[in-house]
Design a protein around this nucleic acid. Structure first.
Ligand SMILES: NC(=O)c1ccc[n+]([C@@H]2O[C@H](COP(=O)([O-])OP(=O)(O)OC[C@H]3O[C@@H](n4cnc5c(N)ncnc54)[C@H](O)[C@@H]3O)[C@@H](O)[C@H]2O)c1
Ligand SMILES: NC(=O)c1ccc[n+]([C@@H]2O[C@H](COP(=O)([O-])OP(=O)(O)OC[C@H]3O[C@@H](n4cnc5c(N)ncnc54)[C@H](O)[C@@H]3O)[C@@H](O)[C@H]2O)c1
Lengths: 222, 222
DNA sequence: TGCACACTGTGATAGTTTTCACAAAAGTTT
DNA sequence: AAACTTTTGTGAAAACTATCACAGTGTGCA
């Protein structure tokens, strides 16, 4: 059933891989050739066994006493994540955040993601260029996506327009949506949505800080 | 031991709260007064029991047959997340992403986060203003943080400068760091780090798409 | 006033993820 | 070359999370 030699990876495991990859690239820059699970685990903050199992899921084979070959590991993880060859993506919403995403070179250089053009509904923006990418009217998204076989869409429009943008993407055959709006999207079964809701991340942080401060207050108060 | 009536919430549960909150605010705009767990669960994509337990962790009490009072629920969640009163934050790195964060009004309006000023090491940026916030030299971060009792720091500098920025924040008494760089940070025990690594989110998306496409290819091939 | 219903609250159960424990393998030292 | 050390790979146990099942309860309706 599973293509990858019967190994599976959990969603949580999947999310450790980019962090491991980033650490491996750092090691490679320092001239390292091999690495064992312990420093990887330490760096990303998990158990060494966990790291070993995540790597195994990508098809990595290590050697006792030596560890894993870094170059090979990087290649395996990149392939697993689909970062080894370039994928084209469309961006909906060339505002504040959308522009930042357009200007981020790492997507192309590291993650194999090429945001080929951006779509907006603001007449003042349509026709202009941001970091070399033309801004097109949102009405053209569906047709162009189908014509260009673009499979990845990025949503950086306000919450109230998010579902509309998602619908246009789905209509254009887009199969994976990276959603930066806080709105939960409704999409067909065969479409993946990754909800990069920053307020979730911020909430986790402030809640923990809040709880800790309250606890300290109580301890100090006594 | 636990301040909140013995109820605890897992990290995963915590991350559902901002989504629930966002949905509740939407309902409130439509003029709803009460809500039950079923639509909440449907909207954020979890089991109704889960939602009920998350709400219980915030101290919410519902009424059989009626559900929960939306206004009360919003207040409870906001308090739990620490979004009910304004917190001041410092931003390190007023580049591409940092500027987008400075320009995002929701942080102040919805999440009680006020990014009061930004720090950079680029002489061309220092002294200028972005969305009404002055850009100061990074060397002043520690002292100012301590003087202003700022507890939240946001890192939007390149990976290689991230640890340095974190160190400056810790030195200034900052206790919660929202890290947008891919670098894993080393901080003391009493400091929280939330790693908003977008490559993690992107990796999860592209890996799933990749896997699905491969599977479909195999199915089609036969 | 009482009966039926729809929902909450929660202990029990199932499922998933992480950690543990240990055998097998590959270098290293003597 | 043998003993020793370090690290992988993996099945088993523990911890955590989500789902189920159902008792309890307030509300609306007769
Ligand atoms: N800026 C941030 O730092 C930040 C942080 C977290 C989340 N977000 C989320 O990202 C999204 C965008 O935020 P932003 O700050 O870039 O807002 P923005 O207002 O700067 O940009 C939104 C862009 O979308 C365009 N737009 C509006 N409706 C559209 C439609 N129907 N079709 C196509 N384009 C449309 C607007 O013209 C504008 O260019 C929001 O959902 C916001 O919640 C932003
Ligand atoms: N732009 C994006 O969409 C995006 C997406 C994901 C992650 N990120 C991450 O966010 C971070 C910033 O990205 P960006 O695109 O804004 O980069 P950028 O180059 O546009 O901005 C970085 C800013 O940090 C400043 N800086 C550099 N070293 C510094 C130091 N030691 N102290 C203080 N300031 C310093 C620079 O002067 C610059 O203004 C990076 O770590 C990047 O990986 C960005």
């Amino acid at each position: 059933m599973n293509a990858n030699k019967g190994k599976t990876i959990s969603d949580k495991g999947l999310r450790r891989l980019p962090k491991i990859l980033s650490y491996l690239q750092e090691l490679q820059q320092y001239g390292e050739n091999t690495v064992t699970c312990t420093p990887i685990a330490e760096n990303i903050g998990c158990d060494p066994t966990q790291a070993r199992k995540d790597l195994a899921a990508c098809g990595a084979v290590g050697r006792p006493r030596t560890g894993y070959d870094i170059t090979e590991l990087i290649a395996l993880i990149e392939t697993f994540l689909g970062w080894n060859n370039m994928s084209e993506a469309f961006l909906a919403g060339a505002g504040n955040l959308g522009s930042a995403l357009l200007g981020f070179r790492n997507f192309r250089e590291q993650q194999g993601l090429d945001i080929v053009c951006a779509f907006d509904n603001d007449p003042a923006k349509i026709g202009t260029e941001i970091y070399g990418r033309e801004i097109l009217p949102i009405s053209k998204l569906s047709n162009l996506a189908r014509r260009m076989h673009v499979l990845i869409g990025i949503i950086a429009v306000p919450a109230e327009s998010a579902q509309g943008a998602a619908d246009a993407m789905v209509a254009g055959g887009i199969r994976a949506i990276w959603n930066f709006s806080p709105k939960t999207l409704e999409v067909p079964e065969n479409t993946f949505v990754e909800h990069a809701d920053l307020s979730v991340s911020l909430g986790a942080l402030t809640a923990k800080l809040n709880l800790a401060l309250k606890k300290e207050e109580v301890e100090h108060g006594r």
